[in-house]
């Protein structure tokens, strides 16, 4: 029997099971979440129709006619969980900060008792790990922000956040790939297209990869947006040294 990689398992109703891998969202715990998620998806267990990896937990959704939590746990206990083969990548994401592209930059800077430039330099200081994709299609949930940037989410969410908006809330940061409602603070906007409809996977990044935000000016934004529009944008990558 394979060694159990999760700390705890609990049924979430009669059609879902939650596995918990740790108390805190650290990269090692999150790596385990994605390893088990990949194995469960590949195994096509009876009745299982959905697998949702998050920071520290994995949700497995199934048809209660075809399985139940005990049966599923027993199958999971025997499931081979291959070691991760893929080396994580780090993508540079150009961002036009402030102004119309980032309407919350000045208010959030004021609330944090920082200048807008200080917020930008803190936000671009180092790459952020993508812990999972969620909230909306292709949305990279990244972390963790330096403590100086941590703030509560907006009290009233926007009904439409423009696609490409770079945002933060709490200890998390990320990018809205599509125009959707949203409650995070908008710092800026990337000219790159993040979500390719109908492609699988629809994003060039995956969980465990990193995004490194880089400030650009309005002219650079316009040039990159034009290249993104014609499909000739090149996504810059940097090699990550060993941690």
């Amino acid at each position: 029997m394979a060694k159990k990689l999760w700390q705890a398992a609990a049924p979430a109703g009669d059609g879902a099971l939650v596995l918990k891998f740790g108390e805190h969202a650290d990269p090692e715990v999150n790596d385990l979440v994605h390893r088990v998620a990949a194995a469960v998806r590949a195994a096509a267990l009876p009745g299982v129709w959905g697998v949702v990896p998050a920071y520290t937990t994995l949700l497995i959704e199934y048809d209660p006619l075809l399985s139940d939590d005990q049966e599923l746990l027993s199958l999971l206990g025997h499931l081979p969980i291959p070691a991760e083969q893929r080396v994580p990548r780090c993508f540079v994401l150009p961002v036009l900060y402030g102004g119309d592209a980032g309407p919350d930059l000045s208010s959030v800077a004021a609330a944090l008792r920082l200048s807008p430039d200080q917020v930008i330099s803190l936000h671009t200081a180092s790459p952020y790990r993508i812990y999972c994709l969620g909230f909306s299609p292709g949305f990279p949930l990244c972390g963790m922000l330096p403590v100086e940037l941590r703030t509560a989410r907006r009290s009233s969410p926007r009904t439409a956040v423009p696609a490409g908006s770079v945002a933060m809330a709490g200890a998390q940061t990320g990018v809205y790939p599509l125009e959707t409602p949203g409650g995070w603070h908008l710092l800026g906007k990337t000219p790159l297209n993040l979500f390719a409809l109908g492609h699988d996977p629809p994003t060039f990044y995956q969980p465990r990869d990193s995004l490194w935000f880089r400030a650009i000016d309005a002219d650079q934004f316009a040039r990159l947006a034009e290249r993104a529009r014609t499909g000739s944008a090149v996504i810059e990558e940097v090699a990550l040294g060993s941690p």
Binding site: A12, G13, G15, A16, V18, H24, A25, V52, P53, A54, Y55, T56, T57, L58, L59, E61, G134, F135, L141, G170, Q172
Partner: peptide, 12 residues
């Protein structure tokens, strides 16, 4: 509510 985000089952 400052717990870590996770996936919630439909019907929760």
């Amino acid at each position: 509510a400052d717990t870590i985000s996770e996936a919630l089952a439909i019907g929760s």
